[in-house]
Amino acid sequence: MALPSQLKAIQHHLRTAQEHDKRDPVVSYYCRLYAMQTGMKLDSKTPECRKFLVKLMDQLEMMKKELSDNESISQEVVGNAHIENYALKMFLYADNEDRGGRFHKNMIKSFYTSSLLYDVLSVFGELSEENIQHRKYARWKATYIHNCMKNGETPK
C-alpha cells in the first residue's frame, strides 16, 4: 500500500524492513514495530493514515504469529540485544571501510541503515549515550560520503 505523505518519516525504516524480510525477519519485525509506533504519533487521524496503519498492524500480528518460536520476538529483551548487535555489526563494517579509505555505495548504505536501526532501538526504551553518538555519526558519515562521491571528490 502506498505510504501517505504524512508518514514520510518512516519510509526508510519500512524499506529496511522489506530488505530484511528474508535475510533477518527479526530486524524486519522491529523495524515495522518502530514504524507503527512512530506512525501513530505522526498521524493516526486522517483516513488514509489510519488505513495504512491498520494494514501495518495486521502485518505485525501475522509476523508475530509466524515467528512465535523465535525468542527475539517472544522476549523483547532478547530482541533488543539482537537489534543492537546487528546495528553495531553494520556500523563497524562501514567504519572499517571508511578508515581503510574504501568508499562505495555499500558502505554508505551500511552507515545509513545502521543509523535507522539505532532509531529502531528506541522502541525498547531510551538510547544509551554511545548509541546516540553512533546514530549521529553514522547518519552524518552516510550523508558526507554520499555528497563527496556525487561531487566527484574524495572523502577525507
Partner: peptide, 27 residues
Amino acid sequence: TGSLGSSVASAEQDELSQRLAKLRDQV
C-alpha cells in the same frame, strides 16, 4: 456526519492502541 466521522476515527485510533499494547504483551 462530522461528529460521526470523528467518533469513528477515535474508535479506530483506540483499537489500534489496544492492538499495539496486546502485540507488545502490555495488556
